[in-house]
């Protein structure tokens, strides 16, 4: 198990009901962690529509997660 900090934005923040949390997980990748959280919190967006950032940098969906990582899941963006 590793401990990671997750920050939530936009639709995920509303569906989670909080801005951030720290948790222990056995998930090895952002996609695995998202699926775990989606099952727990009922996020409506499927994993294939979510990008991930680790420590404020975009990463691949199958990038390795490490102890202490700060993770943000990025729902479809809509700037401009």
């Amino acid at each position: 198990m590793i401990h990671v900090r997750i920050q939530y934005f936009a639709i995920l923040r509303e569906q989670r009901g909080q801005n951030e949390e720290t948790l222990a997980t056995a998930a090895a990748t952002p996609t695995a962690l998202y699926e775990e959280l989606r099952a727990r919190h009922g996020f409506t967006l499927p994993a294939d529509r979510i990008r991930a950032a680790v420590n404020e940098t975009f990463v691949a969906a199958d990038a390795p997660l490490r102890e202490g990582d700060r993770i943000v899941f990025i729902p479809p963006v809509a700037g401009g």
Partner: peptide, 26 residues
């Protein structure tokens, strides 16, 4: 590029009181 890539989200507030996060419909 800014519209396509920046991690920015837009929530529309409609007449009648409903809201929606744009591009996040499932």
């Amino acid at each position: 590029e800014a519209k396509a890539r920046l991690p920015i989200w837009k929530k529309e507030h409609y007449a009648g009181g409903t809201t929606a996060w744009i591009n996040c419909a499932t």
